[in-house]
């Protein structure tokens, strides 16, 4: 017994090192797998608070560009609204009711990241604004990511520039679908894999979300085809998709909630 205690006392530095290293490796491995419980995330009141107050200042320097983006989107929506004869002429918005399955919440990105392998962003909305795990996040131009962890006032978003994220996407012209992944090489290029060989592809075709998951509705624009090639077995295409979003400069985003998701989840789990 005496010897065991002596051994621990003699090697206490090394043992403490091993313990801390083990802890760090556990945190690292957790961060490399999708939606594992993690304590180390930036959606807490300390880091969220610091990022939020710094972003309050920083966002002033980017106002002009963000205003232009919002105006561009407004312009697009107005051109749809006033060109649709009769159908949408009387737009009456009753904010006490929701039409359809999807509820949108506006939010702001307070921490952007695009140079790592697993990029995680931070939002300034959280549980208080009824944002939960697995809600989709889009910008005015296209898709952005999936909500991961939430705290009271902040939430983290797994960006599509994250090797753990897979999103179901399809061609706009036909219904061939595959999954969207990222090979970490460029922040404005993602890869659409598992597209059947039979699918007619053309450079410049649009890729949209397929609506097969409960996270995103069908038809959110993702990007255009930059190049494509068959994989080694020559069965599936791997397509390089150029994103509509400029991932290095985003601020205003919309969080999408599928109001039927609990029902769909119970249905899927009962099978």
């Amino acid at each position: 017994m005496q010897q065991i205690i002596n051994f621990f006392l003699r090697n206490k530095t090394f043992l403490l090192y091993l313990f801390l290293m083990f802890l760090a490796i556990v945190f690292t491995i957790q961060s490399h797998s999708y939606h594992r419980s993690r304590f180390i995330n930036s959606a807490n009141f300390l880091t969220g608070g610091i990022y939020n107050s710094v972003n309050n200042v920083q966002s002033f320097f980017n106002l002009r560009h963000q205003n232009d983006l919002l105006q561009e989107e407004n312009n697009y929506l107005k051109s749809i609204l006033y060109n649709s004869e009769g159908k949408l002429q009387d737009v009456f918005i009753d904010s006490t009711q929701f039409y359809g399955n999807y509820r949108f919440t506006p939010a702001r990105i307070i921490k952007n990241s695009y140079a790592l392998n697993n990029n995680v962003l931070t939002l300034n909305k959280g549980k208080k604004d009824s944002i939960k795990q697995d809600f989709g996040v889009i910008t005015s131009k296209g898709i952005l990511g999936i909500v991961d962890k939430t705290s009271n006032k902040y939430a983290t978003v797994l960006s599509i520039l994250n090797t753990n994220v897979k999103i179901s996407a399809q061609l706009k012209n036909t219904n061939h679908f595959g999954s969207l992944v990222w090979n970490t090489e460029s922040p404005n290029m993602v890869q659409l894999t598992e597209i059947q060989k039979i699918a007619p592809l053309k450079k410049g075709d649009t890729i949209i979300t397929s609506g097969r998951s409960i996270i995103f509705p069908k038809g959110i624009r993702i990007g255009t085809i930059e190049s494509f090639e068959l994989d080694a077995a020559e069965n599936f295409y791997t397509i390089n998709v150029k994103l509509f979003n400029d991932m290095t400069n985003i601020e205003h985003v919309y969080v999408i909630e599928n109001t039927d998701r609990d029902e769909i989840n119970t249905l899927l789990n009962n099978e």
Partner: peptide, 28 residues
């Protein structure tokens, strides 16, 4: 010293959502 280094790395990790990579490198 080991504990403070670990804390330093972990704080950087906390802000950059990177799991424990900075903590592991710092403590080493």
């Amino acid at each position: 010293f080991l504990l403070i280094s670990f804390l330093l790395g972990l704080t950087v990790d906390l802000f950059s959502d990177s799991g424990g990579v900075h903590a592991a490198a710092s403590v080493t």
